[in-house]
């Protein structure tokens, strides 16, 4: 029943066996102990499970675990380098861009993808770029500011 899958997660080669119907989210959380991605809806409507697959941000609840074969996957757990936080992480903390924090891993991954494509986005571009990530606590104000500030840092 199980399918063997070899993939790369946060730079490490990872092998796992999963049932073909299992989502990548379930594999990450239940089989690989990577519980940073959260399940808020399971239907691609909230973005809490966002990860990158081959450089593109996806909802891991809408990807099968078996599709990960040979792909490069990045999760929130791989965002910092050693003890050094990614500028987005630093700015989310500094701007208090999180309250309950459950949407934060998804926002960080979506914001990273956004800034990789568009290093100097306008407020509107940030807002539309993050429209797939629901936050119920902050009203998004501080999230947008954190992304603006992180973009500035990343542009150097």
């Amino acid at each position: 029943m199980g399918v063997l899958v070899t993939t790369t997660i946060n730079g490490d080669t990872v092998e796992f066996a999963c049932d073909p119907h299992e989502s990548l989210l379930d594999v990450l959380r239940n089989r690989l102990g990577l519980s940073g991605a959260k399940e808020g809806c399971g239907t691609g409507d909230c973005g809490s499970c966002s990860v990158q697959v081959d450089g593109r941000v996806v909802c891991s609840c809408l990807v099968l675990g078996v599709e990960a074969e040979g792909r490069e996957i990045e999760t929130v757990e791989g965002l910092s380098t050693g003890t050094e936080l990614h500028p987005l992480q630093t700015k989310f903390l500094e701007h208090a861009a999180l309250q309950c924090g459950v949407c934060t891993p998804g926002f960080l991954m979506a914001a990273k993808a956004l800034l990789e494509k568009n290093p100097d986005p306008t407020e509107e571009e940030i807002r539309f770029g993050l429209a797939g990530n629901l936050c119920r606590c902050t009203g998004y104000d501080k999230i947008v500011r954190a992304v603006q500030d992180a973009a500035k840092v990343m542009r150097g």
């Binding site: 940073g36 999760t75 965002l79 992480q89 999180l98 934060t104």
Partner: peptide
């Protein structure tokens, strides 16, 4: 004053554990 929150680091690194974690 406006210091960083003590649980913040765990929440931006995916380490914080919620109900299903």
């Amino acid at each position: 004053t406006r210091p960083l929150r003590p649980d913040g680091l765990d929440k931006v690194t995916g380490r914080a554990r919620y109900g299903a974690d």
